[in-house]
Write a protein that binds this DNA or RNA. Structure first.
Length: 460
DNA sequence: AGCCAGTTGGT
DNA sequence: CCAACTGGC
């Protein structure tokens, strides 16, 4: 009986053992495999043009990889998937397990519709090394704290990457075709599994050894930039973990530390997916309030402040550089994400959800579990979040992590004439900020005190 | 994965 | 004057 591989944004054929086993079974039975991708308009509501354009490019690459057999259908998954199954007489549909709440509800609806037609939905795993929800504490509860989670995650281990099939008997079905990429000025990274693996190998070769020391330096551009490929399922974290294990064998000192640090970053990704699996409403709701509700800025003043932040004209150079990099690349260095997020929540007193929405609209790697839970981490509202009083100072962060100011000058043209670290405090230049660059929109020292005072009267 | 004020022990 | 350290937010 034919099999359907229902591809999702977060999983391609890649190196997923269960999905590849289904393909192998189909080959052994002399059956065919349908490569199905469902474009559900409801699920695309938060994505802006950059990520939709990347998705289109990623699907074009997937279409090539399947010999032009990718079947794209528009509509609701609980209608489209059973219909495709009926067309080919498939008895099973394989799909990665969803971690987002709407994904789980959608899978249940699809499973029910398939069952009515005599087919089964097979959840074959997830785009994580260890499935979210799998790890439990000794009291059988979810992990509340990252460090014990990481220890359990390392102890648990994971499958080795599965060998890729030499060929797949892809079936032909009528397709609506890969969607057009919406127009965008964002310079997108290369898409597809081939590009993902090429980027990963380049990172392993050039920048892994220095990762532990250099990863916090936005001016150096030495991070792996794998988030976009992980988000779109173009590489599986198990492949990366296997390569890291190989790189760590015999490594000492800085190189060994770098392997451990990178693996820990992957553990954060899995921890956030696990938190969301247990608390689906964490996509919108603070897991624990950090300030009383009346502390948040509202009205036209808050709207104007949010707009200044999104457009990169707060008057704080590191914040503005990050927000402009986001608009130019659909990506921002992680250190700078923390700084701009802290500025929005603790200097502008705007709820983290509004910043998270802006990130989801612009990020090419925008991923619900990672985006929402990392915002909760910065806002101090997460399960194992930074304490609320940990407030980033955009000037000292700039001096420490962009010591020569090169990152700021790259993204803020008005400041290109300012040499060295002085670029982080343009209001202290003899003639004030250069033409076209604003004064700081708020006084950081003052807003920090306001945030701490708000935190002191948080609900218990 | 922080900041800041205050202190200490040195120049 | 400073670097290094500490406690509190």
């Amino acid at each position: 009986m034919p099999t359907i591989c229902w591809f999702r944004r977060d999983l391609r054929l890649g190196d997923h053992p269960a999905l590849l086993a289904a393909v192998a079974q189909a080959r052994a039975d002399d059956d065919e495999v349908v490569a199905l991708y469902v474009v559900d308009p409801v699920l695309q509501h938060s994505a802006g043009a950059p990520r939709l354009a990347y998705l289109a490019a990623s699907l074009r690459a997937l279409d090539e990889a399947t010999g032009g057999r990718l079947v794209v259908r528009h509509g609701r998954a609980d209608h489209v998937v059973p219909e495709a199954a009926r067309e080919v007489g498939a008895t099973s549909v394989h799909v990665s397990a969803a971690t987002e709440p709407y994904g789980r509800r959608r899978d249940d609806a699809v499973a029910a519709a398939l069952a009515a037609g005599g087919a089964a939905l097979v959840r074959t795993g997830s785009p994580y090394a260890v499935a979210p929800g799998r790890l439990r504490t000794g009291q059988d509860g979810p992990y509340q704290v990252f460090t014990p989670f990481r220890r359990a995650w390392l102890d648990h281990g994971w499958h080795a990457p599965a060998p890729r099939p030499g060929s797949v008997p892809w079936a032909t079905l009528p397709s609506d075709g890969v969607p057009d990429a919406p127009p965008t000025d964002v310079r997108l990274p290369d898409a597809g599994e081939h590009a993902a693996h090429a980027r990963w190998r380049a990172f392993l070769r050039d920048d892994l050894d220095g990762y532990d020391v250099d990863r916090d330096r936005p001016d150096l551009d030495v991070t792996s930039r794998m988030s976009v490929h992980l988000k779109h399922g173009e590489i599986h974290p198990r492949t990366m973990l296997a390569d890291l294990a190989a790189a760590g064998t015999g490594a000492t000192g800085r190189a060994a530390e770098s392997v451990a640090t990178y693996r820990s970053e992957l553990a954060w990704r899995e921890f956030h997916a696990d938190v969301l699996w247990h608390s689906p409403d964490a996509t919108r709701r603070s897991l624990r309030p950090a300030v009383p509700d009346d502390a948040w800025a509202t009205g036209a003043g808050a709207d104007d402040a949010l707009t200044a932040w999104t457009e990169g004209r707060t008057g704080y150079p590191l914040v503005d550089a990050g927000m402009r990099q986001l608009r130019a690349e659909g990506w921002m260095h992680n250190r700078v994400r923390m700084v701009v997020a802290s500025f929005l929540v603790k200097d502008l007193h705007i709820p983290w959800q509004r910043g998270a929405d802006h990130f989801m609209a612009w990020l090419v790697d925008g991923d619900v579990p990672q985006n929402q839970l990392n915002w909760q981490w910065v806002a101090g509202t997460g399960r194992d979040a930074a304490p609320y009083f940990r407030i980033f100072n955009p000037v000292t962060q700039g001096r420490r992590f962009d010591p020569d100011g090169a990152y700021v000058r790259r993204w803020v043209p008005e400041l290109r004439g300012v040499p060295g670290a002085a670029v982080h405090e343009p209001w202290r230049l003899p003639d004030g900020p250069p033409p076209g660059y604003p004064d700081p929109m708020v006084d950081h020292a003052h807003e920090r005190e306001v945030a701490l005072a708000d935190h002191a009267r948080r609900p218990t």
